[in-house]
Design a protein around this nucleic acid. Structure first.
Length: 888
DNA sequence: CACGTCACG
DNA sequence: ACGTACGTGACGTGT
């Protein structure tokens, strides 16, 4: 009977615990912790894949006021309560298991161990093959010929499982599974509140049990033992030893009503599980559901209609235009289907049941579609989209038209997530689970999908319009609730158009000069490479930190300062300290510099130059948690400037003929923002006197007359000023200045003595963020800081630094965004040829026509300085040049 | 695809 | 005792 049936029993809490400590702290976009659940599922799936069991059950302890934690318990001898980040995951895990139709066994008065022991033994007797899965070695006492104890280990490379049948236990520990109980009786287990015999540890216990087989037999022969401390302890604690053995024994015949047939596996991959995974944002696990027809039951999909003939298309647009008279004020959800800059069609939604996908086909031309869409706004009907900037090429609207961008709104409401696609917005604001683009189309291009996968393509298009339509009002309400509507309407929404303009304009690059620059680098690289190989005596890949580490710290035996997770650190700050030790170090540093410039800048930028001789990078508005803009494809915000060699690359960025570059940057905008926000009179006065701020800080902090401040004092003060903005920590400052933590602490102390209001302000920021759960900028932009509630010191400290930094960095970001919008608008409104083309956080670059230079300089200065009225002046410096090098 | 490294503010 | 400065993006290596 049951010979070929497999039963898997899982120790729920112990696996959750293992998973919790084995994985980094993962959370959903809403801040729900998920690492333990994910780790549990990874182990569960591995076991399901490997064993393909017929039956599976998970046992949980019913009451857990405290919980085992080996790491702390064994060393400290105290129990540590379950961290909140783990506690909140337990009920979710149980819910998930129930959704998977997996038996969850918890009986008041029984520990999970005893449930597992009883069921395993019962199943064994009935002939099942049994696997017991636990993170705890305690269960080894249950191993037999038919009961396999499986202990998963979370390693970097994935999950590995150690398997123990009875003979494996014997092989590894020289004791039988039953004798494991005796061992534990002697050595005890703090985490399980088993006292054991004082002074007897694992080694002694193992030795004694190997020799005497059991505690009973040991005490029968106690007089044979050599006299000594251990023997004394054994004799004095005989009762304790027997009690401990009893406590260590897992019950195998508990009075438990559970029929193994109840644990039969069925329908693990169902829609409920899929939805839970989606909510937990376990994107990688969703792949397991591919073969399952799920969430197609959503009835909105049934209303999606695909149209490819002109008459029908005309009818739809007319239907939309007629909405004006019907008094329907809801914006029309719209999504332009674009692949590689080509318009494939448009999807529209103007009611729960009115979702249309109109394909560009035959008489439905690109012009037809863009005209008809433009007509919607000209008829004063609002639009709602997800990601306006990416669609502006075909949605011909201006700032004055009514268009609501759900993606931007969602970013403001939670800037911590990485994507704001229709499925994300549906999940977060409609409480709906809809298939994502990858679910529907995989990695295929939109155009290919349209041809080969028309049904799924239609769904993708339809969902985009539907979600844009349905979520808009909810997002707008949330913006009002969170006092961010003004931020959205007055800063972010206009910025969409500003950034679009900048992307279209691009920046001109001298292709030949860039090539020449790269060739020069190549010469230097080859020469350095040769010299390095000669010095070291062998060739190797200098770009591989791993190989370089072996050469420097093993072959050359240089002292290594830092280690990374994977080996020796060869970072620049480490190598710089080694410069005196070996001539090869300087060469490696120079080699690194050159290869970086070659690969990222010389070669990297060249591949982005388009037909028009310009680079059209992207400016991303929904990436940075603080509200900054980011730049990609390529990143034009990290073009070298600090080192002369790298700085030279700026000479290849040139204005169009008859134009020049005007580059304006704010002077220490973040420190000025800090002065304003903190209201510290001393700092405000310093800025109103308009003197060298770092020097003033040095003078005041080090009690030195302004004129006598040494360069070292000034640069130290500068580092402290930076530190303040970053959310000061003595460790970080020490690292930066290469001084001890203690010395750094003194600097900080002195700084706060000098500027007491700043200390008060920063403390207040942390307190407020802890209370609210988020930080706020001068213009109301929020950044949630879930780390502030972490029980982990490191994470909490990080949260505190973020609480200090985000309002400062974020307010500066708000200000320059205002300036960008205004500069862009004024240049356009006055019909000037000059145009804004770049933003680098505190700097704006305008490609200005020669005839307009004076006027543009005035506009830039006015708008940048006037972007916000602070208690200190916002100073700017404008420079002119025939390339970006000259203009900085 | 994660990691180390390094470019910028 | 813990082990970091804040915010980004791109490249090359190695699994």
């Amino acid at each position: 009977m049951n010979e070929n049936k497999k039963l898997v029993l899982i120790d729920g809490h112990s696996i959750l615990f293992r998973a919790f400590y084995g994985l980094p702290d993962l959370t959903t976009s809403k801040g729900q912790h998920t690492n333990a659940i994910l780790g549990f599922l990874n182990i569960l799936y591995k076991i399901l894949d490997e064993e393909k069991p017929d039956y599976l059950a998970v046992a949980f302890d019913t009451h857990h006021p405290t919980f085992r934690n080996e790491m702390f318990d064994e060393y400290k001898g105290t129990r540590k309560p379950m961290p909140d980040e783990l506690r909140e995951q337990v009920p979710v895990m149980k819910e998930l298991l129930k959704a998977m139709n997996i038996s969850v066994i918890e009986k008041p008065g029984f520990e999970a161990d005893d449930i597992l022991g009883t069921l395993a033994t019962k199943a064994e007797k009935e002939g099942y093959q049994v696997s017991l899965v636990s993170g705890d070695r305690d269960l080894l006492q249950l191993a037999s010929d038919k009961i396999k104890v499986r202990i998963p280990k979370t390693k970097q490379t994935g999950t590995e499982i150690e398997d123990y049948f009875a003979n494996d236990v014997m092989e590894k520990y020289n004791v039988t599974p039953k004798q494991f109980i005796d061992m534990k009786g002697l050595m005890g287990d703090k985490s399980d509140n088993i006292p054991g015999v004082p002074g007897v540890g694992e080694k002694t216990a193992q030795k004694l049990i190997v020799e005497y087989k059991s505690i009973e037999n040991l005490y029968e022969h106690i007089d044979e033992l050599k006299p000594g401390k251990i023997t004394n302890a054994l004799m004095e604690n005989k009762e304790l030893a027997f009690l401990s053995k009893k406590l260590a024994t897992i019950c195998t015949d508990c009075d438990l009503m559970f029929n193994i047939e109840e644990a039969a596996l069925k329908d693990i991959y169902n829609e409920n599980v899929y939805i839970l995974f989606k909510n937990l944002e376990f994107k990688s696990l969703l792949a397991r559901f591919q073969s399952v027809e799920i969430n197609r039951s959503l009835n909105i999909e049934e209303n999606f209609k695909v149209i490819d003939n002109l008459g029908e298309a005309e009818r739809i647009f007319n239907l939309i235009y007629s909405e004006i008279s019907s008094g329907n004020k809801k914006p029309v959800g719209i999504h332009m289907l674009i692949d590689n800059g080509e318009l494939l069609g448009v999807s529209l939604c103007f009611g729960e049941k009115d979702v249309y996908v109109i394909l560009r086909h035959g008489l439905i031309t690109e012009d037809f579609l863009t005209d008809r869409v433009e007509n919607i706004v000209k008829n004063k009907i609002g639009l709602a989209v997800i990601g306006l900037k990416e669609q502006l090429k075909y949605i011909k609207v201006t700032e004055d038209d009514s268009v609501f961008d759900n993606a931007i709104a969602a970013y403001l409401l939670n800037p911590l997530t990485d994507t704001y696609n229709y499925d994300d917005i549906a999940r977060d604001y409609l409480g709906m689970t809809v298939p994502s683009q990858v679910d529907l189309l995989g990695k295929s291009k939109l155009k290919d999908a349209m041809e080969n996968n028309p049904k799924e393509f239609g769904l993708f298009a339809g969902y985009n319009a539907y979600v844009a339509y349905a979520a808009a009002s909810k997002l707008k309400d949330k913006l009002i609730e969170t006092d961010m509507l003004k931020l959205y309407e007055e800063i972010e929404r206009p910025l969409i158009f500003t950034l679009y303009d900048m992307e279209i304009r691009g920046i001109r690059v001298n292709k030949e000069a860039l090539k020449e620059y790269g060739d020069q680098l190549e010469v230097g690289i080859l020469s350095l490479e040769k010299q390095i190989y000669e010095l070291v005596g062998e060739t190797f890949n200098i770009n591989s930190p791993k190989q370089l580490g072996v050469i420097l710290f093993e072959k050359l035996r240089l002292p290594f300062a830092k280690k990374t997770k994977t080996g020796y650190s060869t970072a620049a700050d480490v190598l710089e300290k080694l410069q005196g030790e070996h001539p090869v170090i300087s060469m490696i540093l120079e080699y690194r510099q050159l290869t970086k410039l070659k690969s990222t800048y010389a070669d990297g930028l060249a591949s982005y130059i388009r037909e028009d001789g310009r680079i059209h990078g992207k400016f991303n508005q929904t990436i940075a948690a603080t509200g900054r803009i980011s730049s990609t494809d390529p990143n034009l915000q990290n073009i070298p400037i600090k080192m002369e060699l790298g700085r030279k690359i700026r000479k290849v960025f040139i204005p169009e003929d008859d134009y020049v570059f005007l580059d304006a940057d704010y002077s220490q905008i973040e420190l000025r923002v800090l002065a304003h926000l903190s209201g510290d009179e001393r700092l405000i006065n310093a800025y109103n006197e308009a003197k060298d701020i770092h020097r003033i800080t040095a003078s005041e902090v080090f009690h030195t007359p302004f004129e006598e401040v040494t360069p070292l004092q000034r640069s130290n003060a500068k580092a402290v000023n930076f530190g303040i903005i970053y959310g000061i920590s003595s460790f970080g400052l020490g690292q930066d200045l290469n001084i001890t933590r203690k010395e750094a602490e003194r600097y900080i102390e002195k700084y706060f003595e000098t500027y007491p209001k700043i200390k008060e302000y920063l403390d207040g920021l942390v307190a407020k963020a802890k209370k609210d759960g988020y930080s706020t900028t001068l213009f109301g932009r929020r950044r949630p800081i879930p780390e502030l509630t972490s029980s982990n010191f490191m994470q909490r400290s990080f949260g505190e630094r973020v609480a200090m930094n985000s309002p400062i960095q974020g307010t500066a970001a708000d200000i320059i965004k205002i300036a960008m919008n205004r500069v862009n608008r004024r240049l356009k409104d006055s019909n000037m040829r000059s145009r804004l083309i770049l933003q680098v956080h505190d700097e704006l670059l305008v490609e200005a026509h020669k005839d307009e230079v004076e006027e543009v300089m005035k506009i830039m200065t006015e708008e940048m300085q006037g972007a916000a009225k602070l208690k200190v002046p916002l100073e700017t410096e404008v420079k002119i040049g025939n390339n970006w090098y000259e203009a900085k």
